[in-house]
Amino acid sequence: MISCLIVDDEPYAREELKDLLTGADGIEVLGECSNAIDALGFINKHKPQLVFLDIQMPRISGMEMIGMLDPETMPRIVFSTAYDEYAIKAFEHHAFDYLLKPIEEDRLAKTLGRVRSDLRPQLMEEITPQELQHLPCYLGNKLKVVPVATVEYVFSDLSGIHVATAESYVHTHLTLKVLEQRTALARCHRQYLVSPDAISEIVLQETGAEVVTHNGTKIPVSRRYLKSLKQHFGYS
């Protein structure tokens, strides 16, 4: 059984695809999401093997969402779109799977055949943005899209990943690894990333150091990451 997730902002479109997949062999629909932020949470939690992903969605597009996925939990992606000339050209060029809406059953069967024979996720570096502009976050249960430029630091604890900006304190489903790779945030501790723009001073201590941000928050710096942090500012 291949576990899959449907991501589309139009309820009828999700319903239709779900109907079509219900009749297909060896496919189990784990769930459906109406936006990329929910989808990220779902993927991290349920690790579906296959994701049907609409491109045009509110705030965070399908393409952006792929850039936010941890390569380790990256599922196989089948894009779906009603109309997007540019994206379709890219899919053709890289031989990525995609479906045109309204979905033709033959076409879907063909795509599923390809997926069944090789479920390995494809590398999508070339069509996904390398730098994230926005971070999908939650404030309590409310979805919030935070511009990366406003983030001061990020840290992880047992309850998840926390994002601190000058005004708010939210959490996200993105991993520290993805954030380190896809944003300007710099690693300063096993559990912390900090925005170089937010650093006011670095105070050296016996076991490592401490970063003080512009609004006075203190962030630990471990010995292991001190060197790279200092290099960031041109100290060797």
Partner: peptide
Amino acid sequence: FNTLNTIAI
């Protein structure tokens, strides 16, 4: 196209 999709469904 999205409208056509919706109507088709």
